[in-house]
Design a protein around this nucleic acid. Structure first.
Length: 253
DNA sequence: ATGGCCACCGAGGGTGGA
């Protein structure tokens, strides 16, 4: 079973890349973020024609998440229960016997800003809810754009900002791991300077000036099933790319 | 040179992203 995550930065603009990528990679489930697309405008017909079902939680202009899957999605949950939030950042569904969550974590803009406080509060609510989800669903994948680079090796040395790498953000990431989740990417040996996002500016992709902020966290029963985890840089090389690349984990059936 | 790019909305430049 292949499960992937991809921040597409506008589903409308990236739809051709998405359809090509689905055809080539054939993931069993794909978590999308930053749809920037209202539900009524979701391109369901095109995605169904590609052989996928879709559940989604969108809004105009900003945010928006979806899960595409070959098999039906059950027990769909939108947003974090009990957490008042206008922003559409969470959708969860059960596919087969695996609970799959697509998450678009708050960016936070700058350490100390109002958005940063919202980021930390949002992560705290996510963690509390995840504890319940894990109790109900032993096999779980928390996939998405975390807007956190967990370790120094996940950051190009030229990164001068505090946001995405600050100690409180990394502590929040660790709190998720402490629930019993594992960063699937780090189960395996990986090339140095492996990243999932590169700024559009400054020829950042060509210079590999990136950060690894898109992650697939897997619950303990899935760790021994993990076969491989990698970043697919190919879509980042296309014309009009998303600034993020897909990350994929392959699980033994 | 202290910003460069991209997408959004909407009709020009402001906002947000990371």
């Amino acid at each position: 079973m292949k499960i992937a995550t991809w921040n597409v930065n506008s589903l409308k603009v990236r739809l051709p890349h998405l359809l090509d990528w689905l055809a080539a990679e054939q993931p069993d489930a794909l978590c999308l973020q930053e749809l920037k697309c209202e539900d009524k405008a979701f391109p369901l017909a095109e995605i169904e024609a590609a052989g996928y079902q879709a559940v989604f939680n969108g809004q105009k202009t900003y945010n928006g998440v979806a899960i595409l899957s070959k098999q039906p999605a059950h027990a769909v949950q939108r947003d974090i229960p009990g957490f008042a939030d206008e922003q559409k950042r969470i959708i969860a569904a059960t596919i087969g016997d695996v609970r799959v969550i697509s998450a678009y974590v708050v960016n936070g803009q700058a350490v100390g800003s109002d958005k940063y406080a919202y980021k930390l509060a949002w992560l705290e609510a996510l963690t509390a809810w995840l504890k319940d989800e894990l109790a109900q669903h032993p096999k779980l994948v928390l996939a998405g754009d975390y807007n956190i680079a967990p370790d120094d090796r996940d950051v190009h040395p030229d990164w001068k900002e505090e946001i995405l790498v600050s100690a409180p953000e990394r502590a929040a990431f660790q709190t998720l791991l402490d629930l019993g989740l594992t960063d699937a990417f780090r189960i395996f040996e990986q090339p140095e300077k492996s990243f999932s996002w590169w700024d559009y500016r400054m020829m950042a992709f060509r210079r590999n000036f990136g950060l690894r902020i898109d992650h697939l966290l897997v619950s303990a029963p899935l760790v021994p099933l993990a076969q491989r985890c990698w970043v697919d840089k190919a879509p980042r090389k296309l014309d009009r790319p998303s600034d993020h690349a897909p990350v994929i984990v392959e699980l033994r059936a």
